[in-house]
């Protein structure tokens, strides 16, 4: 009985979580349409605390904080999802090919990933964005390039585990190319873990966006992102604390929600059967000896 109650509680919590995340996304998507950000230079009072007219107060240029926040949410989610998608695409192709290739190509490709891990990525991103200006496209490409490496490992591990399944052997025996095998047989199988890893990756990418914003390398104004708003809030912590409270608080809540969702999804869908536990895979350190090779370079 008590077990059942707990389970029910869990399900309800998961549902609430889902509603929270989806609701946030919808609000971000549509809210910015209904409450568009005014251009600066209005007659509205600047840096004003919450009031009836402006529920969340105004920012330092007299713009409504609620509108800014909604716009910022949309930007950050856009950048985050874009970067994650890019990482998934790159990681899947690379990891999938490595997984299917012969041991030598596989080895070489995974050494390539090692080189990638040894690059101080965030520093290259900082250089890239500070040298070549700030655009949303550049931002999500740069962040996507940071995030694809662990995904390449996830996919490769999944493919390695699946490659001796009869349906794959059959597909290959019928003369299917690597590309065909990946597309038609492997990706459908790996879809579930990829969704889970994407969920776990998303908050990390969004945090990196905030980090770049603090360094003044975020999106281009007057566009706002969650990160730029939080950075602005930190800057005005003493004189306009509500900016930090509103922007920082909502960002933190959303990130916590995403992390939780990732955890729950991983547990529910049991992804570690295919690819190993998320914790181990997301531990994106050096290729731990024996992990890359656990199914043996010599197995085929």
């Amino acid at each position: 009985m008590s077990m059942k109650v707990r389970r029910l509680g869990r399900d309800t919590l998961d549902l609430l979580l889902l509603i929270f995340l989806l609701g946030g996304a919808v609000v971000a998507l549509l809210g910015a349409e209904f409450f568009p950000t005014e251009l600066a230079g209005t007659v509205e009072p600047i840096a004003q605390g919450p009031s009836f007219r402006h529920i969340l107060g105004t920012d330092t240029l007299g713009r409504d904080m609620l509108a800014r926040l909604l716009e910022g949410m949309r930007t950050t989610m856009g950048v985050g999802i874009g970067a994650t998608l890019l990482a998934i695409i790159l990681g899947s192709i690379y990891g999938g090919l490595a997984g299917l290739a012969g041991p030598r190509t596989d080895e070489a490709m995974m050494r390539g990933v090692d080189v990638g891990f040894a690059l101080p990525y965030m520093f290259l991103v900082i250089l890239l964005v500070s040298f070549f200006g700030r655009s949303m496209t550049l931002l999500f490409i740069a962040l996507g390039l940071v995030a694809w490496l662990p995904l390449a490992r996830v996919v490769r591990a999944g493919v390695r585990n699946l490659r001796h399944e009869p349906f794959l052997e059959a597909a290959r025996m019928m003369g299917g190319s690597h590309g065909y095998v990946l597309r038609a047989h492997l990706f459908p199988q790996l879809g579930t873990p990829l969704v889970v890893y994407a969920t776990l990756m998303l908050p990390v990418v969004m945090m990196q966006e905030a980090f770049l914003s603090f360094l003044g390398l975020g999106v281009k104004p007057p566009m706002a992102s969650w990160g730029t708003l939080v950075a602005e809030g930190v800057e005005r912590m003493e004189t306009a604390p509500w900016i930090l409270i509103v922007a920082g608080g909502s960002l933190a809540l959303w990130l916590i929600g995403l992390h939780l969702a990732g955890d729950r999804l991983a547990r529910r869908l049991n992804v570690h059967r295919t690819t190993g536990t998320p914790e181990k895979i997301m531990a994106v350190g050096p290729a731990p000896d024996g992990q890359d090779q656990e199914d043996g370079g010599a197995a085929s």
Binding site: L39, A40, G41, L61, F131, G133, G216, K220, P221, P222
Partner: peptide, 30 residues
Amino acid sequence: TGGPHGAVAEFLQGTWQRQLGIRIEPTPMD
């Protein structure tokens, strides 16, 4: 970037768009 320059640019963007219909593209860089 850094300092008040971005705020000035955004402020003028609003003013000129409203008063003259001229659009401004604030372009920050280092």
